[in-house]
Design a protein around this nucleic acid. Structure first.
Length: 488
RNA sequence: GGGGCUAUAGUGUAGCUUGGUCCAUCAUGUGUGGUUUGGGACCAUACGACCCCGGUUCAAAUCCGGGUAGCCCCA
């Protein structure tokens, strides 16, 4: 039996999540945290390949829904940044500033963008003149920089974020609200159907919205740690920025009006982090079919003097699968034993492994292992293609079902304030009735936060859930059903 | 924002309490040669480290101060 192997994850995810995550980073070769600036990890090829796939999915969806790509400069003059008062209040504590070049100090310091509203909308003001220009939909994929003060962790909380941000202008509030809904549809289609991440789209309470927005809607995923992680968010920006940046258009009736703005920011590196955190296990990564850098790994089992028959068989299999556009690789390294390779590729989260040895060649069969349920089967060569096809069809759906099961178990209805802390400490997300998510509810939310360290995440958008008790904190009649959880 | 802990080859570690025995232990890794291969193979041999700056001392991996980075806890 295996002795302690350095390449293996040596703790269980359940008992020590933090250490598990750290070891996964290193052993699956996802990120190297040794770069010597706090909060700036190096992302390694295996992770980057998946992040690129994720990025492509989002870019494709954005372009299919009428967004055009552009690239904005990374620097924003301080004078742009300060034009919208709420925005600067919200972001200033975490802005990196460029104050000079060489030995020259700039007259006006430049912000390393923490998000691009104040760069884009300055240009939008110049570009948009007429209702004929609307809707105006643009996006860019780039890095943004935020000086996080909490503990940083690769993918999940870093000071550099790799994301796409879409910024749109509409003639009416209704149009902009429809855009927010479309952003949610895109999120569901990709986050749930492709990344296998169940989530809830919340309308955030007023005290927790994006700085300068009218309303914020954000997808929360409940991670196995019992804490939620905010994934893509979309904002009904309203007209404040239009006013600050002069984003006006002449309407049909010849009057000048302010544009209604929305923005949407899926963070690809963070989505990847949520994915590996949610689905990884003590063996390593588990990657959905469309995210895996490699879908099928073939391991030839060599025996003395029997290299040739095994080699020609695995080549044949590879060619057949590649014709069907599967991404396939043969691990024919001679210096490692089969067992080593099994563990290696399971750690990397490759969905399917095919094993072929001399015995299999003789019997015209292969061994197929699937990572989603860790099951190994012997399959006749004649059934190879149909068998692989059927795994492909069910693989991601299987991961979704596994995730749904976890998710359903973690949401619990609570009516009594005393039950909040116990359930939060137990890693649950709480569903309850609450007085208000406008500013007048902030006090009750503060009480919850103080007593349990959990936050009121918001109201399930568009679900119109019926309240089932008075406000759990103040006992006044409740206006909303809200969800409460600790956050990452 | 406040507090605590840690830093030794690519990785994980021993040594630190009580400075000298340390041109630094063990494993893994990497290179070379050979034997192997159905769930982390084996033999031989080579390579590779005391986080940075300063201080105390005859002498510092070890003690002290500062920096940087990582981890943990609390707000």
């Amino acid at each position: 039996m295996a002795k302690d192997i350095m390449q293996k994850i040596m703790v269980s995810k359940e008992s020590d999540f933090s250490e598990w995550f750290t070891q996964l980073m290193q052993k699956a070769e996802l990120a190297d945290i040794r770069y010597n600036i706090k909060g700036f990890p190096v992302y390694l090829p295996w992770a980057v390949k998946s992040i690129k796939k994720i990025t492509n999915m989002w870019e494709t969806e954005l372009e299919n829904t009428g967004h055009e790509p552009l690239l904005m400069p990374v620097l924003i003059p301080e004078s742009n940044f300060t034009r919208e008062a709420e925005h600067i209040d919200g972001f200033t504590p975490e802005v990196f500033w460029v104050t000079g070049a060489g030995d020259k100090t700039f007259d006006e310091k430049l912000a390393l963008r923490p998000t691009s509203e104040t760069a884009l909308y300055d240009m939008y003001g110049k570009w948009i003149n007429s209702y004929n220009d609307l809707p105006f939909k643009r996006y860019q994929t780039c890095s943004v920089y935020r000086y996080e003060t909490k503990m940083t962790r690769p993918f999940l909380r870093t000071r550099e974020l790799y994301w796409s941000e879409a910024h749109n202008v509409f003639a009416t509030r209704e149009d902009s609200l429809n855009q927010v809904k479309q952003d949610m549809e895109i999120t569901h289609k990709l986050l749930y159907k492709k990344l296998s991440l169940p989530h809830i789209f919340f309308e955030r309470p007023q005290w927790d919205k994006f700085a300068g927005a009218e309303s914020t809607f954000a997808a929360d995923v409940l991670l196995p740690s019992g804490k939620v992680l905010q994934l893509p968010s979309t904002h009904l920006i309203g007209k404040k920025f239009s006013e600050a940046f002069n984003v006006k258009f002449k309407d049909k009736d010849e009057s000048e009006k302010l544009g209604w703005i929305t923005c949407y920011g899926p963070c690809h590196s963070r989505n990847y982090g949520a994915l590996i955190t949610f689905h990884g296990d003590d063996t390593g990564l588990k990657l959905p079919w469309d995210i895996a850098p490699l879908q099928i790994i073939i391991i030839p089992i060599y025996f003395k003097n029997k290299f040739d028959i095994v080699d020609s068989r695995v080549e044949l299999i590879k060619n057949q699968l590649e014709k069907l556009n599967y991404s396939v690789k043969i691990d024919d390294r001679k210096e490692f034993s089969p067992g080593y390779k099994y563990n290696h590729w399971e750690l990397k989260g490759v969905p399917i492994r095919i094993e072929v040895g001399p015995r299999d060649v003789e019997n015209n069969q292969i061994i197929i292992f699937r990572r989603d349920i860790s099951e190994k089967n012997t399959v006749s060569m004649n059934d190879l293609i149909p068998h692989i096809n059927s795994i492909k069809e069910t693989f991601t759906q299987n991961m979704i079902s596994q995730a749904d099961e976890v998710f359903d178990k973690t949401v619990i209805d609570v009516q009594n304030k005393n039950d909040i802390k116990k359930n939060i400490d137990d890693g649950k997300m709480i569903r309850t009735s609450f007085c208000s998510i406008d500013m007048d509810g902030a006090e009750c939310a503060g009480v919850i936060e103080k007593e349990t360290k959990a936050e009121v995440r918001g109201v399930w958008f568009n679900k119109n859930e019926e309240v089932f008790c008075n406000c759990i904190v103040c006992g006044k009649p409740a206006k909303h059903v809200v969800y409460i959880a600790k956050s990452h």
